[in-house]
Design a protein around this nucleic acid. Sequence first.
DNA 1: GTGAAAGCGCTAACAC
DNA 2: GTGTTAGCGCTTTCAC
Lengths: 336, 336
Amino acid sequence: MGRTTRSVNYQAPTLEDVAREAGVSRALVSLVMRQSPKVSDARRKLVLDAAARLGYRPNANARSLASRQTRVLGAVLHELHNPFYVEIHDGIAQGAADRGYRVLIGTSEPRRGEQSALETLLELRVDGLILVGSRLPTPAILAVAETTPTVVVARDIRSPLVDSIKADERAGARHVVQHLVDLGHRHITHVDGGAGAGASSRRAGYRLAMREHGLHASIVPGDYTDRAGAVAAEKLLASRRRPTAVFAANDFVAAGLMSSLAEAGLRVPDDLSVVGYDNTYLAALHHVSLTTVNQPRPAMGARAVEFLMERIDGRTSPRRERMTPTLVIRGSTAPP
Amino acid sequence: MGRTTRSVNYQAPTLEDVAREAGVSRALVSLVMRQSPKVSDARRKLVLDAAARLGYRPNANARSLASRQTRVLGAVLHELHNPFYVEIHDGIAQGAADRGYRVLIGTSEPRRGEQSALETLLELRVDGLILVGSRLPTPAILAVAETTPTVVVARDIRSPLVDSIKADERAGARHVVQHLVDLGHRHITHVDGGAGAGASSRRAGYRLAMREHGLHASIVPGDYTDRAGAVAAEKLLASRRRPTAVFAANDFVAAGLMSSLAEAGLRVPDDLSVVGYDNTYLAALHHVSLTTVNQPRPAMGARAVEFLMERIDGRTSPRRERMTPTLVIRGSTAPP
DNA sequence: GTGAAAGCGCTAACAC
DNA sequence: GTGTTAGCGCTTTCAC
């Protein structure tokens, strides 16, 4: 095997090396690499062959330093574990690829803030930024938007500096309540999502809908985790007046809830109806079969890229888009 | 509001701007930014204040061009949707942060190969690369390792150029078979993971264990998706000789399997035992309660960073680590 | 500690 | 079409 690793102190070939190998000028190589049309096919091939021979790979740092653009979009997902965000990212990746942009996801230690992820991306001077489900304080986001085109998804920000895309959470929550009321439920409890993206709107929508139906709103605090659902279940089981239906802040909460309920011997939907939110694959599993609210995730991501492109191209007027959520009825709801 | 966006043609302040603002030389600012100890506290503060006033953010491109290192690690996850890979990434993020490195995840359009994600990271000249569950052809990985320190997780590569970390899948599969045999099963079918990372080892481990017990191995082809599980369930239901237990390639396959089984009116584990693999949160959901094999995911990620650091520091001898998997027994298995 | 000077690998005018 | 030139924003000797 001899010299095992070239990795250490390996010197990547440069434009200049390629030019020398091909016997042409550096400028010509640069033009070829940038796919300029004003290069003869013969010389192009000459250069490309030389580059391939050397294993040349353009240095993005040098390139963006000189050109003042990176053709890279930065994405920060609040949670990599939440399939909801990941599916939004699918739309982002697709949209970006369609336009010849790359996407990099900034990450940070588990749960240690999005700020550091953001910072990395910013130092790289990405051309634009998409924040998915961000829980960053608004001022922090605005400060970023001041310097870099920014759009937020699954969160609302009212500022001319950023565009936002989210589903109409209030409407989604109202659909849920309407569905349960139609089934005959009157005692409907909401386990909320705490500070999670969209949680306050879902809570507000629930409150509003309950009032409209002349029903009493009752809210158990939680967050977007199945753990929160389990905790909430215990509270519900211990309460004097058990609801006949529970509207969980998202599918994870609902799953945690259902697990604890099952452990306690309660059956869904016979003893209690449960509704989730987000329509993740979790909800679709037959064992779970959760009635839930669907948001057009990939479409939301694709739209974010669209808005971002417009901003990169100079649009300054803000865009705020509300996508329409739909209720997906499965087996976790039934008449009381 | 006046001029709404500064984003467009916003000119980020440079080292020079900070130096001017602080009334010092550029070199001093550079030293401060790199946290050099040989700067007096007074001058340090002077510079830091000026930088804060201007909203200065170092340009990573310029920095890495000059210093020939980025302090960034690139990660490529085969699938963002698979919580198994994401939890490995948690370990990576943690390990990297502990050592002052950043992590960027390369992405590509859904399902369109890891190669383009890799390319982006390589052009950025990341200091090292971690491939998680990669399905890239080995030569492609070796070509990359030739130029950049590389380690693979949840995949094995025998080459002095790359380190690898994976759990002992064969052992995991044997645990599964042993458990089922102990329960009294003799007709155990394996729904495999096709070309998935580790799938062939799980298959081999299953085969081996079955032979050791003098049992007949029977394999239904699949891949790492719940869809594959559903398809396999139909095949099993249609077969003359239905097994009493199924060992699924991973938890997703198991979930799909259980869903289809439930639809067909079969009960798990009463009519059929099911075992998964990976111990994702899916398996832990009470509604699923899947017996499965656990791999120490965050530890695997952390170890990957450790190896990568050694390689970046110059180690050239390869490391291959096999982590020990453990069987997690839940409610999906019972005597036939 | 501090300042000057060179150069990292590339792009972008600009002449030829 | 092709070659020349001047930076992009930073780090890194090296002399002071």
